[in-house]
Design a protein around this nucleic acid. Structure first.
Lengths: 227, 227
DNA sequence: CGTAAAATTGAGCTGTCTCAATCAATGTGG
DNA sequence: CCACATTGATTGAGACAGCTCAATTTTACG
């Protein structure tokens, strides 16, 4: 494990431009978490940088009025928050969606090897920038698109991200989200999520069964995503 | 100017933890732009990093369907996009709101001095992280808040950011935004912006005159911002 | 197997939108 | 510096997307 830990995870993370030749930081042993738990509370001081190894998680903002907004779904290989590499504060809560496993890396150790390995530095930077772009895209969707457009884009977004990780089977993939997750992610009611997914299903755009989603009509889904 | 350029701008940027003792990168001469122009088109390759010196700008996403979302208002001293320091692509368009002035820094030169000056590195990193937090906050507002909450929060947000730059007079400040800017920023119609601002004005929460905004009842505005 | 959580469906309501008309402010050329 | 043209703001009426509340069915889980 020593000297391999981060390397593996970062390559899993799709950061394959990274090929460290020297020592790399090691993680503590992996942590397992059951589905549907709060892993981190939000506004916590953290001196480690957690990376998801298996399962799905979400980062989520809890508002004083009881509402909540999911800011991102976290997929295997991704940092829980790449900002943690640079600042020791986790701003939002993190919940597990499925059963999952993550590893903690020591931030100080990580930062040292960042400066030592330029390609690692680039890999991390591009992960920070990607995270920012995803959030920009979320804001655009929430500000300008209809419920149907948002649902369609969420599905396509997950499909694309899972594709690059080899986690799809053609146009089908594991889809562990509850409709409440979707609702909190795209800013509409669970009831309305059900309506929209119902339309999509009845009109033959998608098929959902056994926590698995199939894109039955990609073109139509893409057209819906323009709304 | 030589050796002073970036230093000044970065201190203007509120990054006052920065106190470089050696050489610092220099900017090209400042560019002036009239109000209401497109400064950058979006999806452009850029090998400079622009920093706003005077005036207000906004970064804005143009959707194929004609709609647009303002992702951030850019105030004097701020980077147009801090991601540009690390990647040579500007993802979204930038428009001038008022007449303004900005400076271009050479990215390569900037990066070199980043690595040479650790406190400069920290300053830049915290500006990247701040930008991310602002976007997260935008997504939360768009996903979970009513029109009134969004308008109230936008006003408070601008007031806070201008305060740290000494650009307020008590609870009044220059407010060059048109209602269409507000509409595009918070994802509602210009018509509805007018309605909400009208309510706020009639109920004595704010006063607007001569492109200047006064927070007349801060507590009430903060309560409205909870919605 | 039983209980809790999630999804579906329906009825009625409301916040925000669209369209449109009017009025005020801002900018421009003669 | 005025007259006109353009852009921005206000107001109203009607429409609709998405919400709330609630009842029922289905699925998941200990």
């Amino acid at each position: 494990m020593r000297g391999l830990g981060l390397c593996c995870v970062l390559i899993e993370a799709g950061l394959d431009q990274l090929r460290p030749n020297g020592q790399t930081p090691v993680s503590q042993s992996p942590e397992k978490v059951p589905a549907r738990r709060t892993i981190f509370r939000g506004n916590e001081d953290m001196d480690t940088v957690p990376v998801l190894c298996e399962g799905w998680a979400a980062s989520i903002a809890n508002l004083p009025n009881g509402r909540q907004q999911i800011l991102s779904f976290i997929l295997p290989g991704e940092f829980v928050s790449s900002a943690l590499i640079f600042q020791p504060v986790l701003h939002y809560a993190v919940i597990s969606i499925t059963e999952l496993c993550y590893r903690n890396f020591d931030r100080m150790e990580l930062r040292k090897s960042l400066l030592a390995h330029p390609d690692m530095f680039e890999a991390i930077v591009s992960s920070v920038v990607n995270e920012k772009r995803q959030t920009d895209q979320l804001a655009i969707d929430l500000g300008q698109r209809t419920a149907q457009g948002r649902v369609a884009r969420l599905i396509l977004n997950l499909w694309n991200r899972l594709s690059t990780r080899g986690m799809v089977r053609g146009r089908s993939f594991d889809f562990p989200l509850r409709q409440t997750h979707i609702a909190d992610a795209i800013g509409i009611t669970p009831v309305h999520v059900s309506n929209v997914l119902g339309e999509f299903r009845r009109s033959g755009v998608i098929e959902i069964a056994d926590r698995s989603l199939k894109i039955a009509d990609l073109e139509r889904l893409q057209r819906l995503a323009e709304q």
